[in-house]
Design a protein around this nucleic acid. Structure first.
Length: 201
DNA sequence: TGCCAGGCCCTCTTTAGGGCCTT
């Protein structure tokens, strides 16, 4: 049995907490052995106004956020849902800074590493037209999980992309005539390299 | 109104600059 990953995606009011941006929606997909075990998704009201261009991009309106549960309650729930499971995101540097910032507002700290499907895709799939999540999903023929730029759909797309990358890493290390034990060892090495590729520095 | 960040990585690089990617 392979490791379990918590694939996360935030929608936000902007590009960085450093300029006052806050999370507006979060989703996490628990992913193991090529399938979704469980998921969490919620809008979250952080008391900020979402600019009109981001409303259009995500479809998350200020009216929707007015009736959403408080950000503090949602972050406590999602952090408990994730526990110590390793986190994965597409462009993890982005989601990591919002995860850390929103948890810090609760007086809590991240307990695990973040892996990044963007960095892995750049290394393992250099032939792709570009490395946006939507482009890679279409290019690799992965399932379109719903409306792009909504948290649960993007988290599911990133989970399928993670599986595609894990499979690609294993395939690129394959040599004919390997004994089963050798193949298992090679996959462990590939998985370790995946972790190394994806860990934000 | 328009803008705001920041890490990674490539190259016409390393005493730096700029594109990509996230919303």
């Amino acid at each position: 049995m392979s490791a379990c990953f918590a694939v996360i995606d935030f929608e936000t009011s902007g590009l960085s907490p450093a300029v006052g941006s806050r999370a507006t929606e979060v989703a996490v997909v628990l992913w193991q052995d090529g399938r979704e075990l469980d998921s969490y998704q919620s809008l979250m009201n952080a008391g900020v106004r979402v600019p009109a261009d981001i409303e259009r991009l995500t479809g998350i309106s200020n009216a929707m956020l007015r009736t959403a549960p408080p950000a503090a309650r949602v972050m406590a729930e999602v952090a408990d849902f994730v526990g110590d499971i390793p986190l994965v995101a597409h462009n993890a540097a982005f989601d990591r800074k919002f995860w850390d910032h929103e948890l810090a507002l609760l007086g809590r700290q991240r307990r695990q590493d973040f892996a990044c499907t963007l960095l892995l895709a750049r290394r393992l799939l250099p032939q792709a037209p570009d490395h946006k999540l939507g482009t890679l999903t279409r290019w690799a023929g992965l399932p379109a999980a719903g409306r792009a730029h909504r948290a649960l759909a993007d988290a599911r797309m990133a989970a399928h992309l993670l599986q595609y990358l894990l499979d690609t890493a294993a395939r690129q290390h394959h040599r004919p005539g390997l004994a089963h034990a050798e193949l298992c060892q090679l996959q462990k090495v590939a998985a370790a390299k995946v972790g190394e590729f994806l860990r934000p520095r």
